[in-house]
């Protein structure tokens, strides 16, 4: 198994763990964090895929990964706003 393939499997495992946590937890903050873990796993898969071809890593896949990261950041922002509002709702405010 090459290094790239190890990372590929690792990425898959991280993604899966994040997804399972996301679907099972009821804690909102944990959900947001799990979402980010899943995103990190996905990016790991993408970067590993870029390296599996051997030779120079493919820049297009890196661009894809970068975009994924950017989008995850904005999604996290929106999610945090919602979590804050939900918490305020719970406090009766």
């Amino acid at each position: 198994m090459s290094t790239a393939e190890v990372y590929l499997v690792l990425g898959g495992v991280v993604t899966l763990l994040g997804a399972v946590r996301l679907l099972t937890t009821r804690d909102r903050l944990a959900q947001v964090i799990a979402l980010n873990v899943t995103g990190t796993g996905t990016v790991l898969v993408l970067v590993a895929l870029a390296a599996t071809g051997g030779g120079e890593p493919d820049p297009v896949l890196h661009a894809l990964a970068l975009t994924g990261i950017v989008i995850t950041v904005s999604v996290t922002g929106l999610a945090l706003v919602l979590v804050r509002r939900l918490d305020r709702e719970d406090d009766g405010g």
Partner: peptide
């Protein structure tokens, strides 16, 4: 979550 799955498929 669905988007991540799609992104991996694209990659």
């Amino acid at each position: 979550l669905g988007s991540f799955a799609f992104l991996v498929a694209v990659a």
